[in-house]
């Protein structure tokens, strides 16, 4: 009998399904192999969509490789409202009692997951970097602490669901066999819920001139060692020589206002990236940054300080002035 259910929050992303869903589904599928070996039956993998999931989103959920798609509908659910969404999800959890509930650590996920933790009086593991079922059947959630210097194992032994949020970009998407998931409509009772306490007035979508860092294949990243605004432009110039490239930054560069888009910050409190090539210029290698780049295929670092921490995490190290090296690199690239 398949009595365990793994819920995965399918967040709306401008009419599409947020990519975190597919990453989590791939991971859930991996976990499910252990569950199947231990229980004799796999858990049911369930997508959970709240609000008016459009045709395109529904189709990609049905084809995603999940067993079930819960479509939570209601008049108060047309626009994102964290308190109403949380109440709707709580009612679904009470009805279906999922074993595990996974969220991406997005703005929505990080608001709703801890709220559900209170409403269902259960544990929530935050920003997990890995998930597994151990030999005794416990769901082990690896959470980072101290900027990622330390990873701690967290379990929620006595309460359900076991809720975890996972940083987008960490788990790779594997194509799952499509099996046309069963759609289950769920209508929560929301008459009593006050929806006027929090109202989403407007969504200000930021126009980007380049790829978001977590989608880029080449990242030219600058830190405090870039020294000034003018030098910062050099990163853009070098990035222009690569397809699917983006300029990233560290917290100090953002604090100096050299980098203006906080969405390009890489690290534990920013984006996690896994490009083919990462070039770090003038970056010391604080743990909270290193954590965000450690899955990159190839890491090149340039720093004046030969003892810079970032060198330990690099495939190639260059001890020298980042501005001089990048200037020479730009010149050389112009001949390609």
């Amino acid at each position: 009998m398949r009595d365990k259910k793994i819920f995965i929050y399918a967040e709306d992303d401008c009419g599409k399904v947020n990519s975190a869903y597919f990453e989590l589904l791939s991971k859930a599928c991996e976990i499910n192999k252990t569950i199947e070996a231990q229980d004799g039956a796999p858990a049911e993998l369930c997508a959970v969509a709240v609000g008016a999931a459009g045709e395109e989103a529904m189709k990609s959920l049905v084809d995603s490789g999940a067993d079930v798609v819960y479509n939570i509908k209601g008049s108060k659910l047309d626009v994102y409202n964290p308190s109403v969404f949380s109440e709707a999800l709580t009612q679904l959890c009470k009805a279906e009692v999922p074993y595990i509930f996974l969220f991406g650590s997005t703005a929505q996920g990080t608001e709703i997951a801890p709220t559900l933790g209170v409403k269902l009086h259960t544990g929530v593991a935050a920003h997990c970097v890995d998930l597994r079922i151990d030999g005794e059947g416990a769901f082990v959630q690896d959470v980072p602490a101290f900027g990622g210097k330390v990873i701690g194992e967290i379990i929620t032994p006595d309460t359900l669901p076991q809720i975890a949020t996972v940083k987008p970009g960490l788990f790779q998407v594997t194509k799952l066999p499509s099996k046309a998931a069963k759609i289950v409509s769920f209508q929560p009772i929301l008459d009593e819920v006050e929806s006027g306490g929090i109202v989403l007035k407007e969504v200000h979508i930021k126009k980007r001139n380049s790829l978001p860092v977590d989608k880029a294949e080449v990242i030219i990243c600058g830190g405090f060692g870039m020294g000034c605004d003018e030098n910062w432009e050099l990163l853009e110039k070098v990035a222009n020589y690569f397809e699917k490239s983006a300029v990233g930054c560290t917290r100090p560069a953002l604090d100096e206002d050299w980098a203006v888009d906080e969405g390009t910050m890489i690290g534990t409190s920013g984006k996690t990236v896994r490009p083919k090539l990462y070039i770090g210029a003038g970056i010391s290698g604080a743990m909270h940054h290193v954590c965000g780049i450690s899955d990159s295929d190839f890491i090149i670092s340039i720093n004046k300080d030969e003892n810079a921490e970032i060198f330990k995490t690099s495939d190639l190290k260059i001890v020298g002035d980042a501005v001089r090296i990048l200037t020479a690199l730009e010149k050389r690239l112009s001949k390609e």
Partner: peptide, 25 residues
């Protein structure tokens, strides 16, 4: 506390760190 903390470990992010040297060119 519904969550319980288990073992802790330090992730190994070390790479071979081969050095390139010479003039910038």
């Amino acid at each position: 506390s519904p969550t319980k903390a288990g073992a802790i470990f330090s992730p190994d992010t070390r790479r071979k760190s081969e050095e390139l040297s010479g003039s910038p060119e």
